[in-house]
Design a protein around this nucleic acid. Sequence first.
RNA 1: GGCGACGUGGCCAAGUGGUAAGGCAGGGGCCUGCAAAGCCCUUAUCCCCGGUUCGAAUCCGGGCGUCGCCUCCA
Length: 477
Amino acid sequence: MSLQFFNTLTRRKEPFEPIHPGQARMYTCGPTVYNHAHIGNFRTYVFEDLLRRHLKVKGHRVTHVMNITDVEDKIIREACARGIELDQGDALNPPERIPLDEVTEPFLAAFHDDRRALRIEDAESYPRATRYIPQMVALIRKLMEKGLCYESEGSIYFSIQRFPRYGCLSGHRLDSMKAGARVDQDEYEKDDARDFVLWKGRREGEAFWKTELGEGRPGWHIECSAMAMEILGESFDIHCGGEDNIFPHHENEIAQSECATGKRFVNYWLHSRHLMVEGKKMAKSEGNFFTLRDLIDKGHDAITIRFALARQHYRDSLNFTFEGLKAAGEERRRWTDLLLRLEEITAPGAVSESLRDAVANSDREIEAALDEDLNTPQAIAHLHELTTEANRRIDSGEMTAAESAAVVGVFRKWDSVFAVLPEGRGSLDAEIEALIEERLAARKSRNFARADQIRNDLAARGIILEDTAQGTRWKRG
RNA sequence: GGCGACGUGGCCAAGUGGUAAGGCAGGGGCCUGCAAAGCCCUUAUCCCCGGUUCGAAUCCGGGCGUCGCCUCCA
């Protein structure tokens, strides 16, 4: 079956056909580095990671660009409060380091630490907005030459009236947008309240660059168009983000990009729904706002958090609960324990036809599920079915080492997408090994008090012992 | 007010026309020195009301409810 995605643009599932066969170019909206990313952000980044990993399994060469927004109102406010230099230099002759980096770099580093903890693979590129000011200026000048924008009090605005398809992504219609309940708080002067700013002229107390457009700083939307087109080309395959980005951010990206080039900007728009915590919108005021660090500090495992985020379909809102996190941990443990059991099997013999079929079936169904707009819940259900089947066969004592390897193979293959299995158990120090030996001897001599004491002591040190017919198995708790 | 998504067992969740996958939690059993793990058994007329159809969780209409976006929040 072919890979298909639900395209926000058409509101339908469509087969994925990359512009260049075998190559998938994707751009995802990354973090604004003014604080630590929260688990809602990571829900989206984990979805995008699953997407890139599955594209790779399907044989595509993936070029993934995730932008870093490192100039923005809150960052500037913080810089201002700290008395950091507002002049960021000449856009065409930028210094290695700009003053705003002092605010953003610690959070950028933290973001990468967090995503690695969640096993989110490295993207091919992490462009920072502040390093692409000339490209943004060039793009704005192109739009100016085409007469699609206007200047007002030193700022430059895009006139959405000039783009007839405006609203194609979000479904907003120009005429009905006027009735919007919200009043724009922006103090800049616009011809039409719905127009958006491409370039903000320098203002008192705000960071600025010296550019051909004068002194000022870029608007928000322009960075993604400029960086995406610079790195991926004027037309590319996939653009992702959280659902809140559909309007206005992505809508505006389409308008400015397609007006500038006259070409289709992006073929597939994929958006993840938001995450809620314990049934409520995550908000600091609700006391249910969590960064990854918050959860790790509470003793939760990063990979289990990854699994809790990956386990639900990206287009459904995800209700993040501690009960759900516990369930995610149990599911992982079940798979981890199965792998330990499988590794212990040494029986010689061929792979039976029934096992070969079972494994091939699981493999096919998991692939089909992921092909169908990344249906992770269904793919996971198939892994659970394979788990039960494998445990049953192990219990029957008939599984061979070759069969065990076949089952492990399916788990490892799909874990290249899910990335939730342990890489290995590690090893034990000699002291613990000696205790395990001592306990075996104690059990043999029916000194169960001593045996249980050793088991309890080791459990307190994070080593869990389980007795099987073949001997004692250890694992880390 | 405009646009959109969703409502399946205690919890999470698959399933888009043929009489409800899977996991977690709970209960019972087998196994075990005990435990753990594992296996087996166990809980649903799919929000409500109409309609289409031989047949609907699945399609259509109407309710009710939850959630999201409507200018810088993934």
